[in-house]
Nucleic acid binder design. Structure first.
Length: 385
DNA sequence: CGGCTTTGACCAGCGC
DNA sequence: GCGCTGGTCAAAGCCG
């Protein structure tokens, strides 16, 4: 799929702000910028790649990795519409960070996973929630119960011993391989493999078409946990690393100390909308990220784009960063979470904020009509500047 | 020695 | 049907 890369670019460009803006210059170097891309479950089947393949992301695991503790970070989360629409991408206000979620269709190999996710109200959700981002996750889980579908693990299953070759594995042939929900986001970082609190084993690396940077494939080393993640550097913006998680962790983060979450459950969880922080901390909670699921479901075809403007004043304490995963006072998980939380200032109903924001910037309207509709509160208070 | 990375090969899905 | 590409496997090598 060639298109992917292109789309990605397109997207970014569409708005002058897009990529670059989002991540860049405006943000202090030390401040890593972070953006997320969510694959919306769903019906994006038609759509094909968007972000270089990342767009397939979506997913919501129970134990979300606590996102990266980047040495620098900032972030923005935005949900972006898949495919073409991306062109209209959201304007990123200059100093804003954005998180983008895009529903995307699964990659070639995949098949309908996405749709399942979407539709499914049946989805089994997460088995448990735990420590790490517990609060968020749980909440998320609750919200979604029913919505998220846990895609079964593709692997497992029978193998064909027959394959002559050594390797061929059992990827099931008949049924298209189903993928777990994926969740991806971009991080401005010099480090490709960000520490998210989990242990990963690299099992492959492939050259990315139209990009000088390779894509690395990692799998969670915890026994029984089939979570995978792909990491690649954006060709457009080499300083940006795109990380895609697939699947749900069935265990808490090994390096995350007890409830790392310094943050309390977000209020809006009940709304079904998750904050950027949540999203980030719980990538697999993507669904929750969607505003009003019902809307989402109804308009699967629609694209969503949400942008949050971070408060200017926010500074992620770089100090926080210093630490490193594991040990010190600094807990990556909490860090990232809190960071995001702050950054986005999700105080009010996020959904509304997002909406407003969008409105103000007028982009999403086309893209996400439903969002605009929200009659709800006008929390304009959310920061636009 | 165990765990992880590297790397070439192979499979599956998709577009032409 | 062919070629391309993404994704995965697993042997070999590296490292602590």
């Amino acid at each position: 799929m060639d298109g992917r890369e292109e789309e990605l670019k397109t997207t970014d460009r569409s708005n002058s702000m897009a990529n670059s803006a989002v991540f860049s210059d405006e943000i202090p170097t030390n401040f890593p910028s972070f953006s997320g891309i969510f694959d919306m479950p769903s019906s994006c089947e038609d759509q094909k790649g968007s972000l270089g393949g990342f767009t397939d992301l979506l997913g919501i695991p129970d134990y979300a990795p606590s996102l990266f503790d980047f040495p620098q970070t900032t972030s923005s989360l935005m949900m972006i519409p898949p495919h073409h629409n991306q062109q209209r991408s959201l304007p990123a206000p200059a100093s804003t960070s954005t998180v983008v979620a895009m529903p995307e269709r699964e990659s070639a190999t995949t098949t309908n996973t996405t749709s399942e996710v979407l539709n499914s109200s049946t989805a089994p959700t997460t088995p448990n929630s735990s420590s790490i981002s517990s609060s968020s996750n749980e909440a998320a889980a609750n919200n979604n119960e029913g919505q998220m579908t846990k895609v079964q693990e593709e692997e497992a299953d029978e193998q064909d011993p027959e394959k002559t070759q050594k390797q061929l594995k059992p990827k099931k042939k008949n049924q298209k391989r189903q993928r777990e929900p994926r969740f991806a986001f971009m991080t401005k970082s010099e480090v490709d493999n960000l520490d998210d609190g989990y242990r990963w084993r690299k099992y492959g690396q492939k050259a990315v078409k139209n990009s000088p940077y390779p894509r690395s494939y990692y799998r969670c080393t915890t026994a029984g946990c089939g979570v995978k993640k792909r990491v690649e550097r954006s060709s457009d913006d080499p300083s940006t690393v795109v990380t895609t998680y697939e699947g749900q962790h069935t265990h808490p983060s090994p390096i995350t100390p007890r409830g790392t979450m310094g943050i309390a459950p977000l209020p809006h969880q009940s709304t079904g909308f998750i904050s950027a922080a949540e999203a980030s901390s719980n990538p697999f909670g993507v669904q929750q990220f969607l505003p009003h699921h019902h809307h989402y479901q109804q308009q699967q075809q629609q694209q969503y784009a949400y942008m949050y403007q971070s408060s200017p004043s926010l500074n992620i304490s770089s100090s926080t960063y210093g630490g490193g995963a594991g040990g010190g006072p600094f807990n990556p998980s909490s860090f990232s979470t809190s960071l995001l939380q702050e950054r986005y200032n999700f105080e009010g109903p996020p959904s509304s904020s997002a909406t407003n924001f969008l409105r103000d910037h007028g982009l999403l309207q086309d893209i996400v009509p439903q969002i605009r509709k929200e009659p709800k509160e006008e929390d304009h208070h959310h920061q636009h500047q």
